[in-house]
C-alpha cells in the first residue's frame, strides 16, 4: 500500500459517501444519472468476485463491502425509494448504457491477461469503469446547472482514478515485474474522460461562479 493508492481509495470512498449523503439527507437524486450508478454497481459486482475466496487484508475486504453496499443502495434509493425516485429525471437520463456494457464485454473476451471467467470478469469491470461516467457527464451537459454536491461527486470520482495512476507509476518503479497495461490504459482513458469536466470545475471554482458546462 502506498500513499497514492490510499489517497485514491479515500477519495473514492468520499465520492460514494457524498452521493449517499446527498440522496439520504435531502431525499433527492436530481442531476444524478441512474445509468451511471447501475454501471458502477455492475463494475463492483464483477470486480469483487474474489471477495469470499481470496482474503488479502481486512482493509481490502472492508472497502469492497462498502463499495458494493453503497453502490447497490444508491441504485435502490433512486429506483425504489418512494420520495427519491420522484426526483429522478428519466427523460434526461437516456444514455443507452447497454451500448457500453456489450463492447466492454467483447473487449474483455478479446483482450485480457488470462482467459478464465474470473479474469475476464475482472477485465470487463476495468473497461466498464472507464466509461461508466459517460451517462452522468451527458446528463450534466443536458441539465447544465450542477448542484455542488453532484459536482463534488464527479470531481472526487475522477480524482480517485488520477491518484491511482500515480500509484501505478510508484509501484512500477518500486516493485519488480509490476506491469499491467490493461489496468493502466483503462485507468488513463477513464481519467481523460473527466478531463474536460475537471477543466470547467476548476474554472468555476477559480472564478467562484456556479459550475456550468457548455452545451
Amino acid at each position: 500500500m502506498n500513499i497514492f493508492r490510499f489517497a485514491g481509495d479515500m477519495t473514492h470512498l468520499a465520492s460514494v459517501l457524498v452521493l449517499l449523503l446527498k440522496i439520504h439527507t435531502i431525499k433527492s437524486c436530481a442531476g444524478i444519472s441512474l445509468k451511471t450508478q447501475e454501471l458502477y454497481a455492475l463494475v463492483f459486482a464483477t470486480r469483487y468476485l474474489d471477495l469470499f475466496t481470496d482474503y488479502i487484508s481486512l482493509y481490502n475486504t472492508l472497502m469492497k463491502l462498502i463499495f458494493l453496499g453503497s453502490s447497490f443502495s444508491i441504485v435502490w434509493y433512486i429506483r425504489y425509494h418512494k420520495i427519491v425516485r420522484r426526483s429522478y429525471d428519466k427523460d434526461q437520463d437516456t444514455f443507452r448504457h447497454y451500448f457500453l456494457v456489450l463492447p466492454c464485454l467483447l473487449l474483455a473476451l478479446l483482450i485480457n491477461e488470462k482467459f478464465t471467467f474470473r479474469e475476464v470478469m475482472w477485465t470487463f469491470s476495468l473497461y466498464l469503469e472507464a466509461v461508466a461516467i459517460l451517462p452522468q457527464l451527458v446528463l450534466l451537459q443536458r441539465t447544465r446547472n450542477i448542484d455542488n454536491l453532484t459536482g463534488q461527486y464527479v470531481f472526487l470520482l475522477g480524482a480517485y482514478r488520477a491518484l491511482y495512476i500515480l500509484n501505478w507509476i510508484y509501484r512500477y518503479f518500486t516493485e519488480p515485474h509490476y506491469v499491467h497495461w490493461i489496468t493502466w490504459i483503462s485507468g488513463l482513458v477513464q481519467t481523460l474522460l473527466y478531463a474536460d469536466f475537471f477543466y470547467y470545475y476548476f474554472q468555476s471554482w477559480k472564478n467562484n461562479v456556479k459550475l456550468e458546462l457548455p452545451a
Binding site: R5, I56, N60, K64, E113, W122, Y164, H177, Y178, T183
Partner: peptide, 10 residues
C-alpha cells in the same frame, strides 16, 4: 504470486 499482486487493488 503474480495474480495475488495484481488483485490487491480495489
Amino acid at each position: 504470486y503474480q495474480t495475488r499482486a495484481t488483485k490487491d487493488e480495489l
